[in-house]
Design a protein around this nucleic acid. Structure first.
Length: 192
DNA sequence: TGACTGATTGGA
DNA sequence: CCAATCAGTCAT
């Protein structure tokens, strides 16, 4: 029996967000809502935010809001946008380096592809809000990451699955940086 | 303490 | 194209 759904340990995320962002495609974001209810979403779209990037919340200085981004890798950075939606990020790289990967879209089992096609929509369906800001991403917590399945790895190697790298969406700054990645031809991606 | 803004979304 | 809606940020 092949081992699947291995945990993505926080230590595995201690590298630049521009490296981690494409690596997270095909991995799973797992949310425990109660003793008996778990939601699992395939990550199909990501964006990287990094030091020197004017769109990064940590671009200017460390503040109460962006503090988690500056911390160690493997925590969740959650913030409120436009007063009504939350965005979920995976903190990457080392202590003191403002770096994170925004999870932009998930493909969920037994739900329409568009249900979590967008950062605000996926936080709504996964019930992620600022109470989860700073959460350590591991299985004894309400939120964690699991790796690609052997089937995904095999299809990627065979070319049956491929990735697209483009510029980020919805920004007013840093629009030239090609730091968005998504799974080609996946209906759950927010925009093409 | 006040004005302005935004890594979004859905509807006109 | 535009409004909804509010915490964070920065200027007074």
């Amino acid at each position: 029996m092949t081992i699947t759904n291995q945990i993505v340990e926080p230590s595995a995320l201690a590298r630049p967000s521009t490296v981690i962002a494409p690596e997270l495609l095909g991995c799973y974001l797992v949310r425990r809502l109660s003793e008996v209810e778990i939601i699992r979403g395939l990550i199909v779209e990501t964006e990287a935010y990094a030091p020197g990037d004017p769109a990064c919340h940590g671009y200017k200085k460390r503040t109460e809001r962006n503090d988690v981004m500056f911390g160690t890798a493997g925590r969740g950075y959650v913030y409120l946008i436009y007063g009504m939606y939350h965005c979920f990020n995976v903190v990457t790289d080392g202590e003191g380096i403002p770096s994170a990967v925004l999870i932009r879209a998930l493909l969920l089992d037994s739900l329409p592809a568009k249900t979590a096609a967008g950062p605000g929509k996926l936080c709504r369906v996964m019930q992620i809000d600022r109470s989860l800001n700073g959460v350590i991403l591991q299985p004894n917590q309400p939120l964690w990451l699991e790796g690609r399945t052997p089937a995904f790895v095999q299809q990627l190697a065979a070319g049956a699955i491929s990735f697209v790298q483009t510029t980020r969406i919805g920004l007013t700054q840093g629009t030239d940086l090609p730091w968005r990645w998504y799974i080609k031809n996946c209906p759950a991606v927010s925009k093409i």
